[in-house]
Design a protein around this nucleic acid. Sequence first.
DNA 1: GTATATAATGATAGTGTATATCAAAATATA
DNA 2: TATATTTTGATATACACTATCATTATATAC
Lengths: 200, 200
Amino acid sequence: MSPHHDAAAPGWRERKKAKTKAAIQHHALRLFQEQGYAATTIEQIAEAAEISPSTFFRYFPTKEDIVLWDDLDPQLIAAFQAQPAELGPIQAMRGAIHDVLTRLPAEVVAQQGVRSHLIFTVPELRMRMLDQFAGMIDLIAQLVAERVGRPAADFAVRTFAGAMIGTMLAAFFTDTTNPLAEYLAAVDAGLAYLQAGLPL
Amino acid sequence: MSPHHDAAAPGWRERKKAKTKAAIQHHALRLFQEQGYAATTIEQIAEAAEISPSTFFRYFPTKEDIVLWDDLDPQLIAAFQAQPAELGPIQAMRGAIHDVLTRLPAEVVAQQGVRSHLIFTVPELRMRMLDQFAGMIDLIAQLVAERVGRPAADFAVRTFAGAMIGTMLAAFFTDTTNPLAEYLAAVDAGLAYLQAGLPL
DNA sequence: GTATATAATGATAGTGTATATCAAAATATA
DNA sequence: TATATTTTGATATACACTATCATTATATAC
């Protein structure tokens, strides 16, 4: 029996790594909830996940990344591009958000409560979140550019993308108790209002 | 001669404190420019400013604040409120920015080059800047609310403020070489474009 | 002018995140 | 079974930041 490396199924090693990463995140979020973010040390997290502190930093570059790590961006990109071509950028974004949300695994939705509470209350995490938002300007500018057939560096396209991000940001900072669905509903309302031309 | 505390002129102490703070900022920015932000330690800054490391933290709560500290917000608020009542919020903001810029002391403008370069290149500083931007949503929402006679918590008002911030954000992330005037010109163009209804 | 309260400073010690290095252990490949 | 390669853990270290306390400087009261 040769150990013919099944390329389709990701080998033992990668699976074990994924499991370890999930375990770290799981125990860390639990500890954060129990004792608070700042009061929980890497040492405690490492002990709970049964690894050494050295190993922790091989899975998460910083403590903050435990809370912020997810991989929704590629899904959002795909969903945006999959929207009907006749939709404008704002409508396409609303559709994409809706589609991604409905397809989201229950376990991710469940964790979202703790995560967004932490992001709201811990300054460092809020800042990192904002950085991700800002990084999305480039991303959205590119998606918008594709859809309307213009260069992504176009000033109008970038400003448009900025306005979209801004409305989402305003929705994000609207309420403090923040289940995912409720937040996304606010984002949707904000984008609808932007599309209507921001009538005051 | 009694030491009758001249209330108008801020006493010795406060002046000396202001001078010390300025000296710290001055030497720190110089060191950042020479050796880089991360490579410069608080110890080095303290030594250059001829104070102890302990004292440093009594003047700046964090290393980041050396770069980010300024007091433009109150000026911007005053300038916004001083705009003619018949102007809409976006026009008023454009006017306010213009007014503040022209009144800005030359020494502040001179420092701006180093500061914005650092904010662009050092992640922690960029994040703090973004946090300030996000905080401005509340501020701008309030100013807009006053101007159009609506509650600041109004969803439309907040989303409108978010869109304004978003366009400014997009302008901020447009170019890397960033003299203050050039950046503010981009902000002005972005707001003008927003006012025009974001035509693509 | 001297005594007393108040504030600023510096020295010291400590916590916790993050980095670097290197040997030991686990896993893959030949 | 032998040999690379990866993963891990142990150790040492840097540096931002906090807390505490004695010392010094400044302001106020007598």
